[in-house]
């Protein structure tokens, strides 16, 4: 029982990252109908930005030739917040400059997000190389920073990451339900033409959606970096799980995508822990098989099946 509990605790940090990416993907797809395949790379890039802030004027992490922009090393929280702000600006810029002119054609838009995927990957490799780096966790991470519950260890940073993600997504829900901007966002996702007719500035709302999605991705990257370290391919695996989790929410429900993120992390940990022929690398494959199975049995994921989900 304590082993089961330990594995459940272990899945929390990864689950938070998958959930955050899934929510970000769902938000963009829901509002624009575009699958942002660069979501993971945006998060990876933001993590490197956080690393630049956190490292200060280090010759290994200098941004171009100008390190004065950053000054002294920032605390990890400050670095992550700085990266979130830059990432949100980058998300808004991406929507305005790259996506909006071609948003009418989904193939071109997906192609553009893939272009961004490659561009960010190339930029990071050429700017900072491909070696593994360490950002550190914003939460206490020593061997004593834990609670012992039922013979299992619950680490403070796992709890911190999970609580932070839940709090941020709770704030996002409040933003959507209690503010005018949120109302406009819901109107646009529900009926874009109708929103235009009642005077909502759809383009601004979409830009806000991309900015928020990029910010959530940056937060996920910054928080999980303490667990998995920073390297150019750090988000590949997370993106796949994030996409799978978003699928559980029918790509349209951030709440179900969030739940899906934790479900997939739980599944990953349990398969790796209890099934003898599944090692930690191949859990990805089993998760994919589960995803295919879910799509076979229930194409709409955990979403209630509506008319729009009928066979096309």
């Amino acid at each position: 029982m304590s082993l089961f509990l330990q594995r459940t605790f272990d899945s929390l940090a990864n689950g938070s990252a998958y959930a955050a990416l899934a929510v970000a993907i769902s938000m963009v797809f829901r509002s624009t109908g575009i699958l942002n395949l660069a979501q993971g790379q945006l998060a990876m890039f933001s993590t490197y930005i956080a690393l630049v802030f956190a490292t200060g004027p280090s010759p290994y992490m200098k941004f171009s030739s100008n390190t004065d922009l950053v000054g002294a090393a920032w605390p990890v929280w400050g670095a992550i917040l700085g990266a979130i702000v830059i990432s949100m600006l980058l998300g808004a810029f991406t929507e305005r400059v790259i996506i909006r002119p071609i948003s009418a054609d989904p193939v071109a838009a997906v192609g553009a997000t893939l272009g961004l995927y490659l561009l960010l990957g190339a930029f990071v490799r050429k700017q900072w190389g491909g070696r593994t780096m360490f950002l550190g966790s914003p939460f206490p991470q020593t061997v004593d920073d834990r609670w012992d519950i039922g013979g299992a260890r619950l680490w403070h940073d796992s709890v911190g990451i999970t609580v932070t993600m839940i709090a941020v997504l709770g704030l996002l829900a409040i933003l959507q339900r209690q503010t005018k901007a949120g109302l406009a966002f819901r109107a646009v996702t529900s009926n874009r033409t109708g929103s235009l007719l009642v005077g909502i500035r759809v383009s601004r709302v979409l830009m806000l959606g991309w900015a928020l999605a990029a910010g959530i991705g940056a937060l996920a990257g910054g928080l999980i970096a303490g667990e998995i370290n920073v390297r150019p391919d750090m988000m590949g695996r997370l993106l796949v799980f994030g996409l799978a989790a978003a699928t559980l929410g029918g790509l349209r429900s951030p709440v179900l995508a969030f739940v899906g993120g934790y479900l997939f992390a739980f599944l990953e940990t349990m398969l790796g822990g209890y099934v003898s022929f599944v090692d930690s690398q191949v859990t990805l494959v089993w998760a994919l098989l589960v995803l295919i199975l879910v799509l076979f049995v229930r194409p709409s994921g955990l979403m209630p099946r509506t008319e729009s989900w009928q066979r096309r």
């Binding site: 272009g115 961004l116 490659l118 561009l119 490799r125």
Partner: peptide, 17 residues
């Protein structure tokens, strides 16, 4: 990577995919 990214973006803009 940059060349492929540029190719994708240019294709998306100039030929609409």
């Amino acid at each position: 990577g940059f060349m492929y990214a540029a190719l994708l973006l240019v294709t998306a803009y100039l030929t609409k995919g």
